[in-house]
Design a protein around this nucleic acid. Structure first.
Length: 422
DNA sequence: TCTGGGGTCCTAGGACCC
DNA sequence: TCTGGGGTCCTAGGACCC
């Protein structure tokens, strides 16, 4: 049986989230900035129309944005995450099977939908999400995930109804001729540039190439993409909450850091946060990468990194922080200033496998596991960083990012509830 | 003056083994 | 003089995604 997929894509998601509680900003340019307020990570249509590219450093476009009265926001991931969850709830209530692909996109397998009036279904989804969350979405529907994604792109940029269907071969060909190579899901900047050199321009051009050539030049992933463009169903919904194989935390600093104690504080804090996430997925981890990025010297940054093994898998934040700080001591060079630090938990495996592999229960390990569970519980209930490790040294921390333009946490903090005036 | 953060997968090459 | 064949594991680097 032929399958049918939908891709639901939130329009300008972060910018749209900022508008939900600021209706005065509808029809005004809105941009959202990265951590540290460094570059643009989301743009309303009005900002796109000004020619402001994604990812551009703020200082390059600040004048232009001010001139047009743009509203700028520091990224407020707490708000976006909460709105994203509400949208997922709406979709889940209307779909047989859903894959939450990212914070602003979900795939839905419509094959088992009771009705085959997909256009009507899509219209109802768009209307409900709009009414219940205030976020506009675009929907693409096709026989493969790659085509559904392309159709959603078309709906967003060319369409008039917010939905585009490519279930007929003629619709598919028209879409592929319209779709620039660099906008194909799975073909990035590098491959697009390479294909341009062969005179290829549209998705239709690459779909017409022989499989052997694609396999050789674009590997197996490229061939999967092309077959999906041709209308074959290769990729299916990925619904299992798969465990992360690596978990990382990093930040660029608001200003250059030279002091190793500040770096220790940052690295310890990243480690503690990553370990909370790791324990939440019921895993254990056996090593940690510590890395630093120096301030530019002779116009280049140096990246320094080292991996420190724990000796045996662990759930213990103290063990991980100790390893991270040992690693830091190995790579730290007092001659440099640093603009970024980070950690990556590696060697992650399921806790179940770890416990089964133990011949003898270790009472100390058990106690540490219980302690960590208790800490996680308290921090969930009373707020993050209610309890923290001394090495995080939070009271003296000077490494935090800038986020001077952050909107309130309207939906997740009692203090930030919007006020209604009579 | 000033440039984010968090992931996944694939491939090539080296080390090592029988 | 001449130098196999097959396999695994690990890592680094490159490509992709949002």
């Amino acid at each position: 049986m032929a399958r049918v997929f939908a891709l639901i894509d939130c329009n300008n998601f972060f910018a749209s989230c900022e508008r939900v509680f600021r209706p005065d900003l509808w029809h005004k340019p809105v941009a959202v900035l990265s951590n540290n307020d460094g570059c643009i990570i989301a743009r309303s249509n009005e900002v796109k129309a000004l020619g402001v590219p994604m990812g551009v450093p703020l200082f390059k476009v600040e004048g232009l944005l001010k001139q047009h009265g743009a509203a700028l926001f520091s990224a407020n991931f707490t708000l976006y995450g909460d709105i994203s969850q509400r949208i997922t709830d709406v979709m889940s209530s209307m779909a047989p099977a859903i894959e939450v692909y990212s914070v602003d996109e979900s795939f839905i397998d419509l094959t088992d939908l009771a009705s085959s009036n997909y256009a009507a279904w899509a219209e109802e989804v768009r209307t409900r999400i709009w009414h219940e969350t205030g976020i506009p979405v675009s929907i693409g529907i096709g026989p493969s995930k790659t085509l559904a994604k392309a159709a959603a792109e078309y709906a967003k940029r060319q369409g008039t109804t917010g939905t585009h269907l490519v279930l007929e071969p003629s619709d598919r060909l028209q879409l592929l001729e319209w779709l620039p190579l660099e906008d194909v899901w799975g073909i990035g900047r590098r491959f697009a540039a390479k294909l341009h050199a062969f005179g290829l321009r549209s998705a239709a051009d690459v779909a017409a190439l022989p499989d052997g050539w694609i396999l050789k030049e674009m590997t197996i992933k490229g061939l999967t993409t092309v077959r999906e463009l041709r209308g074959d169903t290769i990729l299916l919904l990925e619904q299992d909450e798969t465990e992360r194989k690596t978990i990382s935390r990093s930040r660029s600093f608001g200003h250059t850091i030279r002091n190793i104690h500040q770096l220790e504080s940052a690295v310890a804090t990243f480690t503690a946060q990553a370990m909370v996430k790791m324990r939440a997925q019921d895993s254990v981890t056996s090593g940690i990468v510590t890395y630093l990025k120096t301030k530019k010297v002779n116009d280049t940054n140096r990246n320094l990194a080292t991996v420190t093994s724990f000796g045996e898998p662990s759930v213990d934040t103290g063990t991980a922080i100790q390893a991270a700080i040992e690693g830091l001591a190995r790579i730290y060079d007092a001659d440099f200033g640093y603009q970024k630090a980070g950690i990556i938990l590696v060697g992650i495996q399921s806790k179940e496998a770890w416990q089964l592999s133990l011949l003898m229960p270790d009472s100390k390990r058990g106690k540490r596991t219980d302690l960590m569970s208790a800490v996680d519980l308290l921090n969930r209930r009373f707020g993050p960083e209610t309890i923290w490790h001394a090495s995080q040294n939070l009271r003296a921390a000077r490494w935090h990012s800038k986020h001077e333009l952050r909107s309130p946490a309207y939906t997740t903090s009692w203090h930030d509830l919007p006020t209604l005036h009579r």
